Simulated scan of single mutants.
Amino acid sequence: MNKDQLCRMLEHDQGLSCSVCKKESKKHWTNSDGLENDLTKVGDVEPEDSRGYDEYKERGSNPFSETAPLSLSYYPYNCSSVYKCGSCHAVILIYLETGGHGARYQARWAQSGLEITP
């Protein structure tokens, strides 16, 4: 899923919270709490120019903050799958984090209004 397709999906997101996907708790990368099993997978992020494990840190950006842009060519976006909540139509990005003590899925709500970089 490229930048334009993702932008079109974000237009249908409804509300600031949801009892199904709990998007309000996924404003930054955090444990997926099993959403990869509960939501509908609609595709994978298609980076314009994959930067491997480089993180987007333009203009002092913290890639794991709530205000970080959705930087599709950078880690962890470039290895993320795109899921959609059937209840509120939120777009949730999910990737498998394999560093640290064990593999675990991480999720982030792709909120409309955030900058999206290819």
Rank of each mutant, 00 (worst) to 15 (best):
D33S: 10
I94P: 02
D44P: 00
L6W: 06
S81I: 02
E115G: 07
E55G: 02
W29M: 03
A103Y: 08
D33Y: 00
S73P: 09
P63I: 01
N37R: 13
L39F: 04
K23S: 11
S81Y: 04
S65W: 08
G60Y: 07
F64Y: 15
C85M: 09
D13A: 15
Q106I: 05
A68R: 04
Y77T: 03
R108K: 15
I116V: 14
V42I: 12
G15H: 12
R51D: 01
A110W: 05
Q5P: 03
D13E: 15
S25T: 14
H101S: 14
K27S: 07
N2G: 14
R59A: 12
N62H: 06
G34Q: 03
P69L: 11
Y74G: 00
A68S: 14
Q111V: 11
S19N: 13
V42K: 06
E115I: 13
K84F: 04
W29S: 01
S81E: 11
S61V: 15
K23P: 01
L70S: 09
L35C: 05
V20F: 13
N31L: 11
S50F: 00
V20S: 13
S112I: 09
S32W: 02
Y53E: 08
W109T: 12
D49V: 04
Y74F: 14
P47L: 08
H101C: 13
A103I: 03
I92Y: 06
T30P: 00
S19W: 06
S80G: 09
S65L: 06
C79P: 01
A107Y: 01
G34F: 01
G99L: 09
Q5A: 15
P69A: 08
L72Y: 04
Q106Y: 04
K57D: 08
T67A: 09
Y105E: 12
M9G: 02
L72P: 02
E66P: 01
N78P: 09
L39M: 07
H101G: 15
K27T: 12
S19E: 14
Y105F: 14
L6D: 07
S80V: 05
R108L: 11
N78W: 01
H28F: 08
E58R: 06
G52E: 07
V42P: 01
G52C: 07
G102Y: 13
E115F: 10
R59C: 08
K41T: 05
E46A: 11
R51P: 02
H101Q: 13
V42H: 03
D13R: 11
E36Y: 04
I116M: 03
K22A: 11
N37G: 00
R108C: 05
Y77A: 03
E115T: 14
R104K: 15
A90R: 06
H28C: 06
F64I: 05
A90I: 10
